[in-house]
């Protein structure tokens, strides 16, 4: 993965950054992660793989 940046995204962050963190919102929307805050808080991290040009 020489040209890949791997970014762990922690869904629980949504609970504390929901208003300000638009990018994380977008990530969770794309993943279809929703439901109660309790469910989101207990999820494992999501790996965000960014493939560089």
């Amino acid at each position: 993965m020489a040209n890949v940046l791997v970014a762990p995204v922690y869904p629980a962050m949504l609970l504390t950054n929901k208003k300000s963190c638009r990018i994380l919102d977008a990530v969770l929307d794309r993943l279809g992660i929703g439901g109660s805050e309790e469910i989101v808080a207990e999820l494992n991290p999501v790996l965000q793989l960014m493939y560089l040009k």
Binding site: L31, N44, P45, L47, Y51, K53
Partner: peptide
Amino acid sequence: SDFVERVEYIPLEKTDECLIREVSRVFE
């Protein structure tokens, strides 16, 4: 987008055996 070609998301499964506190390093 000037330097990133595409993005992939991989939700890591959560089980009783697998509760991740912090991702310190990732190998493939």
